[in-house]
Amino acid sequence: MAQNQTAEKALAGAAQGAVLRPGRAADPVPGNALPAASRAGQQVAAAPAGSDGQEAEARQRQLRLMLRQCDRVLLMDFELLAMNDWPDNFSVATARRRRDLWLFSALLAAVVFLSGLTGFVPAWIAGGGFGAFVIILLLGIPAVRRLYTATPSYLDLLIKRQRMLRDARKHAEHLEGEEGLIWQCARMAEFNPTLRNTRFSGLLRLSEQTALPRALSRREHVRLYLIYLLEAEKAYDRVQAAFFEGNQQAIDRGWQSAVAKPEGRT
């Protein structure tokens, strides 16, 4: 429990700046990130002929390792982690007011009924209070409430929130695996400097400790995690482009030992 509370505090500050707008245009690529794929190919092309492509082979092996360690980012479910159907605070507050009004009405009717039993009010008023109490209780039963309104109750909204968080944590656990996905994806920061942003430091530390899924206790945490995955996906595409460009350069120069294929996704 103490570890989860510490993890939640570690994410709270960074999550405040997590803003995700579905459908927005892709972030502009930093000037020093665009040439990353080309630089990888240039390193292959610039390798001394006398080295028999050893440097190129080492670079290709490094790129292939990056691809293998971060390939699970391609399994990301955007809709599940974006949680676009999340009940907003206004809807929850409105539902809570309706619940409080329902409780107050039921309590008032019960008081009127009990007052009749003690003789403070006439019997016919007490009978009316009892009837009102029964009707109000029936209106609070989910099966009955759905007959006259489709508006979700306060309890329905809370359950929906908990279910969405549970599904997001379960998906994050699947992505992270036993090694910590985003911690391994951080090695691709050469191809996307955004991965070095300090607001992701808490996520990376938890991922390294394989404690990240349990720490995603708020929607803001999940959305911050999704933002990192999107940036990692961009980096993955650039690493893949650099890998194939390096392969082509090695083929053109006849360095067969440097030619390799990316390993299959796990």
Rank of each mutant, 00 (worst) to 15 (best):
Arg223Val: 15
Glu57Asn: 10
Leu204Lys: 01
Met188Leu: 14
Cys185Asp: 05
Leu138His: 02
Gly177Ser: 02
Gly202Asn: 07
Ile136Ala: 12
Lys9Pro: 00
Thr151Ile: 11
Gln249Tyr: 06
Asn32Met: 11
Leu20His: 13
Arg253Phe: 11
Lys261Asn: 03
Ala250Arg: 10
Thr198Gly: 04
Pro142Asp: 02
Leu165Ala: 02
Leu75Gly: 00
Gly140Thr: 04
Leu175Trp: 07
Gln248Asn: 08
Gly53Arg: 11
Gly129Ala: 02
Trp86Glu: 01
Leu158Ile: 08
Gly264Thr: 07
Ser115Phe: 14
Ala25Trp: 08
Arg166Asn: 08
Glu57Ser: 11
Arg68Ile: 01
Leu108Ser: 12
Arg39Ile: 11
Ala26Lys: 12
Leu117Glu: 02
Ala150Leu: 12
Glu231Ala: 14
Leu103His: 09
Asp100Arg: 15
Ile159Gln: 11
Leu203Glu: 04
Met164Cys: 01
Leu74Pro: 01
Lys234Tyr: 01
Cys185His: 05
Glu231Phe: 09
Leu181Ser: 05
Ala25Glu: 10
Tyr154Gly: 03
Arg253Trp: 07
Thr118Leu: 15
Val259Cys: 09
His221Gly: 05
Leu63Asn: 10
Leu158Asn: 00
Gly140Cys: 06
Lys170Trp: 05
Lys170Glu: 06
Asn247Cys: 15
Arg205Met: 06
Ala37Trp: 14
Leu230Ala: 04
Ser207Pro: 00
Pro122Trp: 08
Trp255Val: 07
Val239Ile: 13
Leu175Tyr: 08
Pro262Ile: 10
Ala14Gln: 11
Arg187Ile: 01
Arg24Tyr: 03
Ser91Val: 03
Ala93Ser: 14
Arg219Glu: 07
Leu11Ser: 05
Leu117Asn: 03
Ser91Arg: 15
Trp102Ala: 15
Tyr148Gly: 03
Phe90Gly: 02
Ser201Ala: 15
Ile136Met: 12
